Simulated assay, not measured.
Amino acid sequence: MKKLSYILFALFSLSFIACSSDDSSSSSEDDNSLYVRFTANGQQYNFEAETITSLQRLVMGDEDVNDVYTRISLWMPVTPTTGNHTITDDLPSDDNLETLYNAELWIGDATYTGTVGTLTITDLSEEYVKGTFTFTGEDENGVTIAVTNGSFRAYR
């Protein structure tokens, strides 16, 4: 009976070791998180990504940063494709919904519409879209802002 107790104890102990956490694996936090990250005016931003789909796909992130509402919006076709896509300030129409890529940055009361830039889709899966972006935005007064080092991972 004593041998059986030792065997059961050893098996029970091994079951805890076999179920240990996989924290030391090679996957990083980014592999599982949703985010929109970028730099504007020297300030780095890191938001949780949200996705809204209607006539276009909107990937956005927003929050109050130092008591100032800040939001980034990346617009793309409902069925995006991998590769480099030009960001423009063209308005959506029936003719361009499947090819239009836009970007917008809100900082407080200022809204900067992307006038020139690139949105690159690097990965598409059944569930996620991932990529990078950079653009120059302009507000209604002609003030420009450079958005650099942009990256995102969001639900598709």
Rank of each mutant, 00 (worst) to 15 (best):
G42R: 04
Y69C: 10
N96Q: 13
F16T: 05
Y155C: 05
L14M: 00
Q43E: 03
I145N: 00
V78I: 15
N149C: 08
V129I: 06
G114T: 09
L97S: 09
T148F: 03
Y6L: 14
A146V: 09
D139P: 02
G137A: 07
T144M: 06
K130L: 04
T122Q: 03
T79C: 13
G42P: 06
K2F: 15
N102I: 01
T86G: 10
E138Y: 09
G108V: 13
G150S: 09
D94R: 11
D30M: 15
S27A: 06
Y155K: 07
S13E: 01
G61P: 11
V147C: 01
L34F: 04
F133S: 02
S54D: 14
A154F: 08
Q44W: 00
F9S: 08
T51H: 13
V65C: 03
E104I: 06
T88V: 11
V143H: 03
E140D: 06
P92G: 08
E104V: 08
Q56T: 14
L58V: 10
Y6C: 12
S15L: 08
D94T: 14
I72P: 01
S93C: 14
S54G: 11
A40N: 01
T79Y: 15
Y35A: 04
T86Q: 12
M1K: 07
I17H: 01
H85L: 07
Y35C: 03
G131A: 03
V65S: 01
M60T: 15
Y128K: 03
K130T: 07
R57C: 13
S73H: 09
I17P: 00
E104S: 11
E127N: 00
A110W: 11
Y155M: 07
S27T: 08
V68A: 11
T51V: 14
S26W: 04
N66G: 05
L74V: 12
V59L: 15
S54W: 11
D64W: 10
D67W: 07
Y128Q: 02
E104W: 04
T113W: 09
T132H: 01
F133I: 06
T113E: 12
R71Q: 10
T81D: 14
T88G: 10
I87M: 04
I87L: 04
K130H: 05
